[in-house]
Write a protein that binds this DNA or RNA. Structure first.
Lengths: 216, 216
DNA sequence: TTACTCATGTAAGTAGTTACATGATTCC
DNA sequence: GGAATCATGTAACTACTTACATGAGTAA
């Protein structure tokens, strides 16, 4: 149930529409939680029903309206309780590593393709997280400025530092992924050199037990 | 839909019951995908209905029976297609980092608690992954031995190496998490030193917009 | 006989995804 | 006038979790 707390924490910075919240989640460099808009709108209605947020119907142009959501006292209590409470660690569930475990079912080129995409993706991510951490350190994001504007000065350092720590951590994580993928690419090269010319065929195609011959 | 492929890949090593598959997923050091047994039994029935696995009713003691699942040709084709296909990268969704972003809602001690638990967890995990990678490298796990026993010798090096690469990667990831948590703990110490004596009160408790005074 | 592991499920609920749908506003 | 963006939803589905339920086998 992290979504509700992600929403409450964003709204604690200031009133927002569901649409704006969704945009925050979509900005890949901007947020550590992702959700699609149908889930956001649904959850906002639920939070409203539970009294953790309130909606102000606001005008939008001439005829249209939008719903500006605002955290309530109860919402703030929920945030306080959430931060105080300790959660047990998540179990491993990573589609990339799962597939990487069985790369022998494909050819060396298939393996290289996966590893290169992983490497390139995390190079981009590392740069994005790093840039966002820099923005936070310069206190140069709308959300952070809104947050600091209503917080006591003595808390500013901590508010900024915790966020910078998270995004530097994400950037470091992504750099780790890049190193891992690069090591993988070297491994594939070594394996292919050992194997000799094998073309683009699977190294060890999966076989059902009936068809199996004892190891050759 | 990684679960079905995780199951197929495990079964490709040799026939197993749902119970044994669930145990593989539960062994924290043993597997990169986690699932609870009801999901596993359900998915196995589905795979059976789709013809990707077949079940052999096997005796268990005097009166009881168990269902041994076996991959079919179609199941192997599905594995082959899965490894060949490239998946777009997952969006960020990490409850630990989400909470770490808002540690200022709690006291310094609350922050320390979260970071210490994270550090300790990942120390244990790193050791576990590392030990498993060592076992794989020595070709000293039941599953791997079963796998090698029905694979052509020229593929053995790759089969082992890809798995070792994954578990070394996991271990390296966890060491990264330990470093991140340690840096976080140093950060909390610095912040608390700067703040002076504040006891165990929240650094910046969340407040609804109505009650806000312009920054003090 | 008691406790533990082996073994397999159902049922209800929550969380997240994908497709479909609509309409106003703003900028070129 | 057309395209992009703002804005909000419903409905159907898939994935995952939690609680409940049962019973045989095995070793102390």
């Amino acid at each position: 149930m992290s979504l509700r707390h992600a929403l409450l924490a964003l709204l604690e910075a200031g009133p927002m529409t569901g649409y704006e919240l969704a945009k925050q989640f979509d900005a890949s460099a901007g947020y550590v939680w992702h959700a699609h808009h149908p889930q956001i709108y649904t959850e906002l209605r639920r939070l409203e029903a539970e009294g953790l947020v309130e909606a102000e119907e606001a005008p939008r142009g001439a005829a249209a309206t939008k719903r500006l959501y605002v955290v309530t006292d109860a919402g703030c209590d929920a945030l306080l309780a959430w931060v105080a409470e300790s959660d047990e660690p998540a179990r491993e569930r990573d589609p990339v590593l799962l597939k990487a475990t069985y790369l022998e079912y494909g050819s060396f080129d298939v393996a290289r393709g996966h590893l290169r995409r992983h490497r390139d993706h995390h190079r981009r991510m590392a740069a994005g997280w790093e840039a966002h951490a820099d923005d936070l350190e310069r206190r140069d994001t709308t959300l952070l400025r809104r947050r600091l504007a209503h917080s006591p000065r003595h808390a500013h350092e901590a508010i900024v530092a915790y966020k910078v720590h998270v995004y530097r951590g994400l950037s470091e994580r992504s750099r780790g992924e890049v190193r891992w993928a690069e090591q993988g690419l070297e491994l594939v090269d070594r394996l292919e050199a050992d194997a000799g010319p094998v073309g683009d065929s699977p190294v060890n195609p999966p076989t059902p037990p009936e068809r199996r011959s004892p190891a050759s």
